[in-house]
Write a protein that binds this DNA or RNA. Structure first.
Length: 651
RNA sequence: GCCCGAGUAGCUCAGUUGGCCAGAGCAGCUGCCUUGUAAGCAGCAGGUCGUCGGUUCGAGUCCGACCUCGGGCUCCA
């Protein structure tokens, strides 16, 4: 056997090492800094521990803590430390799965006698974890036969399920009768795929965030385990930066800003998940809706209206009662036996409008639009601010086309959607294609495939990333959804476009073609904002409450320096209002600084201060949001500037 | 729906082991101040401590149920 081996690095260069060298040795031979940052290695395309023995000819890449895979490993290893700490501190506790997730990790546990974790427990667990980290316990990989694993984990029923292959665990491998384990001496061992950091001393920049319930295997029929979530990073700086980002996100929370800016509220007297919009929120909402109508009108949509309740018949035909009865408000019995339901969807109404008379191919595509208010009985635990409510208004459109028109219509529809979203400062998109939900879909597989392919073709034309969401479609058809990243990089699902061959069949819709025969139209369901409420919430968070001028409830506030400037200030307010702007005035009852501060806290685009000089020269002092104060600006000049902002949808 | 946590004035929060603990700041109102770019001064008013029951001589404080909110899980036509 040769006493030297040669491996190749990612750049293709060869590197000679003594036989018996590990991936860690390779890192050390390349450089001190690399050795220090190394977490795991990629050997011939497979992730390995740093103690992995290298062979002659291996292709090796050292993975450091700066990379996504390195960070993932740190989080995964930290999850093991969490499990060890919990098993140490709570005799009789058992554990489920503990994978890394975005920004951190979690681990699921079950405590004896149905005990649950308290916030105090988290502090104790944290302390135990830090002690384990101080001990620098190695992570030792092993492969053992199933039979041995079953014995080793006989007190851990969830691990037994994993070993037997009865439960999915993203971080374990059980194949060919062998189970891979990782041991942290002296006494912790877990079923795990690995790889891991060399020892626990590499960890430590973590924080336990919260405890939550989680069903075993994600199924609500199974027992609920206690899940502990943590965040973990390669350095203290990164951990602190993450915690800081969370704080920033909290400041943008639309529920908090909704109160502070007097936009909307959820009076307890009305009921959970039912919002009222206050005047200021009402202005924003009205502008959103008006602008949407204007754009839809330009794009050849026709506007329709439909009632909030209907006989059950309509939702029996559509299939909603079969699939979503639990998500609907219970029926009202009327007229001696007929059940009426609050509508959870607008589509059946639009279908009836279509069916109100014979349709010709010359009318298609027929585009119907409605701000349709729907009611859905969301489970009590899921309502969340304006993003998940029980009463909401969809900016709902249904487009009826021929099969031939379908592709072009989808394409122009998607362009229309993206274009309108950009008007709200959202311009970072990707698409998601949701396919047939196995077990709760109507229609033939062939129809589904055809519809899905049509959506995929259009999605791929958009020059955006297209990711798959297998089984995520509605019961009647696949959908493509537009995902948006906001100002601080969070993604929101916005518009959805669903292609539906089923409803036209169920409602026996048709049109007369140019051949004089009856044909079945295809239906496209589309919500652009999704729901007005939810979109409103996204905008509040995206703008952090600082609405651009075109949406701002108050665009300009005029502040007279002294009482004797009041008349001039009022004339300005009248002038702005006459030009169609939203302006108000606060008299000099308190010092200017205090009034400016209040206006700033309201996040108004412009504060105008007017005093002696301005009265004398028809000027204003402009204090723009986020900009420098400018004195002696002629009124005309300011009006032009504001008008430009409004037109451009900026500032 | 399930698990955990929380509900004290419009908002943000104090209220030790149940007993001179119903408080503060901001906001509001009334005066005074007349102010040039992020908090002028003073006074006043404001809460059956989420709701309903229970324990106790005595309950924001302890127990139970319910409601609402928050964080998750499940769900999301």
């Amino acid at each position: 056997m040769a006493d030297q081996i040669t491996v190749s690095l990612p750049d293709g260069s060869p590197r000679a090492l003594p036989a018996g060298s590990t991936a860690g040795d390779l890192a050390a031979s390349i450089g001190k800094r690399l050795a220090k940052a190394a977490v795991i290695a990629d050997v011939n395309g497979t992730e390995r521990d740093l103690v992995w023995l290298l062979d002659d000819g291996d292709e090796v890449a050292i993975i450091t803590e700066e990379s996504e895979r390195g960070l993932y490993t740190i989080r995964h290893s930290t999850a093991h430390v969490l499990a060890q700490a919990v098993l140490d501190l709570f005799p009789g506790a058992t554990f489920g799965i503990g994978p890394p997730v975005e920004n951190g990790f979690y681990y699921d546990f079950e405590l004896p006698e149905g005990r649950t974790f308290t916030p105090d427990d988290l502090a104790k667990i944290d302390a135990r974890m830090r002690a384990i980290i101080k001990e620098r316990q190695p992570f030792i990989r092993d492969e053992i036969p199933d039979s041995q694993a079953l014995e080793l984990f006989k007190d851990h029923k969830y691990k037994l399920e994993i070993i037997k292959g009865a439960a999915e665990d993203p971080t374990s491998v059980t194949e060919k009768g062998m189970v891979r384990t990782y041991e942290n001496p002296p006494d912790f061992i877990d079923v795990c795929r690995g790889p891991h950091v060399p020892d626990t001393g590499r960890l430590g920049h973590f924080k336990l965030m919260r405890v939550a319930g989680a069903y075993w295997k994600g199924d609500e029929k199974n027992p609920m385990l206690q899940r502990i979530y943590g965040t973990a990073w390669a350095s203290k700086n990164e951990l602190d930066a993450h915690l800081h980002r969370l704080e920033e996100a909290e400041k943008r929370d639309h529920r908090k800003l909704g109160v502070e800016l007097d936009l909307f509220s959820f009076p307890e007297e009305i009921g959970s998940g039912l919002a009222v919009f206050h005047p200021k929120g009402g202005i924003v909402r009205r502008i959103m809706e008006d602008y949407s109508r204007e754009r839809h009108e330009q794009a050849d949509y026709e506007f329709v209206y439909s009632p909030h309740i209907t006989k059950e018949n309509l939702f029996l035909t559509s299939g909603h009662l079969e699939w979503f009865a639990e998500g609907m408000y219970p029926p009202m019995e009327m007229d001696g036996g007929t059940d009426y339901y609050l509508k959870p969807m607008n589509c059946p109404f639009h279908i009836l409008i279509y069916k109100s008379r014979q349709r010709s191919y010359r009318e298609l595509p027929l585009r119907m639009f409605e701000f349709g208010t729907v009611y859905r009985y969301e489970k009590s635990g899921v309502v969340h601010g304006l993003t998940r409510v029980r009463g909401m208004t969809q900016d709902d459109a249904h487009i009826f086309t021929t099969k031939e028109q379908m592709g072009d219509e989808l394409r122009s529809l998607l362009l229309f959607v993206l274009d309108l979203l950009r008007d709200y400062g959202l311009d970072d998109f990707y698409l998601e294609l949701s396919t047939r939900p196995e077990g709760k879909a109507v229609g033939s597989v062939e129809e589904w495939d055809e519809a899905t392919e049509a959506l995929r073709a259009v999605g791929e034309d958009m020059n955006l990333d297209l990711v798959m969401d297998e089984g995520g479609g509605a019961f009647y058809g696949p959908k493509i959804s537009v995902q948006t990243r906001d100002a601080i990089g969070r993604t929101w699902q916005m518009s959805t476009i669903q292609l539906d061959f089923q409803m036209p069949q169920r409602f026996e819709m048709d049109y007369i073609g140019d051949d004089g025969k009856r044909h079945r139209p295809i239906m496209i369901h589309r919500a652009l904002f999704g729901s007005v409420e939810r979109f409103f919430a996204v905008l509040v968070e995206h703008y952090a409450g600082a609405f651009p001028a075109w949406l701002a409830p108050v665009q300009v506030r005029v502040l007279p320096v002294r009482d004797d400037h009041d008349a001039y200030a009022w004339r300005l307010v009248d002038r702005f209002k006459a030009e169609g702007f939203r302006a108000d005035m606060v008299t000099a009852d308190e010092p200017l600084g205090g009034r400016i501060r209040k206006a700033k806290l309201e996040k108004l685009p412009y504060v105008l201060v007017v005093g002696d000089d301005d009265v004398a020269h028809s000027t204003v002092g402009v204090n723009p949001r986020g900009g420098e104060v400018e004195r002696d600006v002629p009124i005309e000049q300011f009006v032009e500037r504001l008008a430009a902002d409004v037109l451009a949808h900026v500032t």
